[in-house]
Amino acid sequence: MAENAAHTVKSFDEDIAQLRAVITRMGGLCETQIADAVDALVARNVEAAARVVEQDKRMDALETEAEALALRIIALRAPLADDLREVVAAMKIAGVMERIGDYAKNIAKRTPVVAQSQPIGPAVIVPEMARAVIEIIRDTLDAFVDRDAEKALAILQRDQQVDEYYNSLFRALLTFMMENPNTITPSTHLLFVAKNLERIGDHATSVAEMVHFTATGQRPAERPKTDSTSSVYTPH
């Protein structure tokens, strides 16, 4: 990705840097929120889960901040070309990050129920799946800050990996529930957790698409789906 020259008006660069910093902070917060929510779930730590729910307010505040900054840049700087694309993308990305935060919060909210029941074998896949999702978010944010189209494009392929985790967890849980009908309630909650992570993966991937558009002005080509499981059983 070609490095951009500085703007003649230096405060314009400062505004853009500030907006990027807020988006980066939102991305960082997404990563911790997902990791903490899944840790709390696995550790059956209800207090830790409650802290995740509490932390989500910071995400909302950051989204408001990003929106205000973007609006100010549009009003005062009248950005054009890649600057315009970046500001608009930043505003959209902030919205998506906020949604990702909601999913993390939703995972945390299920911890008390899951904590009350016996351990569920297939749950071991959840932290692995969460790790894959977090890495996608991290790399997407790096690509955003660097306006790196190549990196964004490479990320698009990785959503499949998350879908595969979901599909295998889905099947494992189905079998587990049939064999242990008394675990249907916690298993269902776990299934929703996996679905949340799968949705987060989709959102993160859509952010990667926005990053690609910001960098090139082009939408990337359609991305593939291997298995229909993750798109058919949508609990929302």
Binding site: A5, H7, T8, V9, F12, L80, A81, L84, R85, Q218
Partner: peptide, 19 residues
């Protein structure tokens, strides 16, 4: 031109990076 100029010189000019 204003959302996705092809030439770097055009982009640098319209985004205020010229000179």
């Amino acid at each position: 031109i204003f959302t996705n100029p092809k030439a770097t010189r055009t982009k640098d000019y319209i985004t205020g990076r010229y000179g």
